[in-house]
């Protein structure tokens, strides 16, 4: 089986300094790291590798991105490949995914592509699904656990509010794993030495049979950094019939409007009954029963 891992080199969020007035990033202070979710993807690919299987690590980027490929070689990836087009210093998801998918196709299609679910930087998380669409494959994102069963992968994926779901996908497929799905193994010293000396193969557009016109996706006309302020939310508006001091009190209660609540008092027994009755009335006893 052949497994491909897509890696990306990203600004370390701890070093991203945002100007509070203009919202621009101070690029001179930014350090770059391997995306943690991609590191998890690499570890999962290495764990899935059986004797005779090959793990290929790919990335899109300039020469600086070689570092993530050397990291991959150091921990045991079999092959690496960097894709780049010098003239277009762009890393938009549609372009990145087209370059990666075409590279996979020209190098011989793998059986499984593993990616990191969400990059820290842009955080769009679209690239895995877009690679899948380019290859005509299914995609599963936000994967926490996966296991191989012949031509299928069983997975557990994360949902909002702490929920999860379980399912399966037929191979070939693209799976995007979450950063906490696995912890990348440490590289051995011989591994690091070997990786430092290794030559990194690079593919440019002509090698992939693409022309710059193929990368012309609709792009925004304007792209302006903004101060990172949250948008005002629609919240409670005090009743305009109330006297001013009560309205002020309502606004300053941090969004908690004075509720039309009741207060009960009495023997502990009665109070416990009151709470149970209230919970029952509000329907909180039904679902967890």
């Amino acid at each position: 089986m052949r497994i491909a891992v897509c890696l990306s080199r990203l600004p370390d969020p701890k070093t991203v300094e945002v100007d509070p007035i203009t919202g621009e990033i101070d690029a001179s202070r930014t350090l770059y790291v391997l995306n943690p979710a991609d590191a998890a993807a690499l570890e999962i690919a290495l764990e899935l590798r059986a004797p005779g299987d090959r793990v290929t690590a790919l990335t899109v980027g300039s020469e600086a991105a070689d570092s993530v490929l050397r990291d991959a070689l150091a921990v045991g990836a079999d092959d690496v490949l960097r894709v780049w087009e010098e003239d277009r210093a762009t890393t938009r998801p549609l372009v990145t995914s087209l370059l990666l998918a075409t590279a996979l196709r020209t190098e011989g299609l793998p059986d499984l592509v593993v990616c990191g679910a969400r990059t820290l930087a842009g955080g769009s998380g679209k690239v895995p699904a877009l690679i899948a669409e380019n290859l005509g494959w299914p995609a599963v994102t936000d994967v926490l656990e996966l296991s191989l069963h012949a031509a299928r992968v069983h997975f557990q994926r994360r949902l909002g509010r702490g929920g999860r779901s379980e399912g399966e996908v037929t191979l070939p497929a693209v799976l995007a794993v979450q950063a906490d799905a696995a912890r990348l193994r440490y590289a051995t010293l011989p591994g690091i030495m070997r990786a430092e000396r290794a030559a990194i193969p690079v593919r440019h557009l002509p090698d992939l049979g693409l022309s710059p016109l193929d990368l012309n996706f609709p792009s925004p006309t304007f792209r302006t950094p903004m101060p990172p302020y949250a948008r005002p939310r629609e919240v409670f508006i005090p009743d305009s019939h109330l006297p001013p001091h009560e309205r002020a009190a309502q606004i300053t209660s941090a969004g908690i409007a004075k509720r039309s609540g009741k207060v009960v008092e009495g023997a502990p027994e009665e109070l416990a009954d009151a709470i149970v009755a209230f919970l029952a009335e509000q329907g909180f006893l039904d679902r967890s029963a």
Partner: peptide, 21 residues
Amino acid sequence: YRFTHDRRVHERLVWARGTMA
């Protein structure tokens, strides 16, 4: 308007007229 970098960066994007997005 969208957030990037863990909601620490905010940017405004405008597309050509009539772009389906």
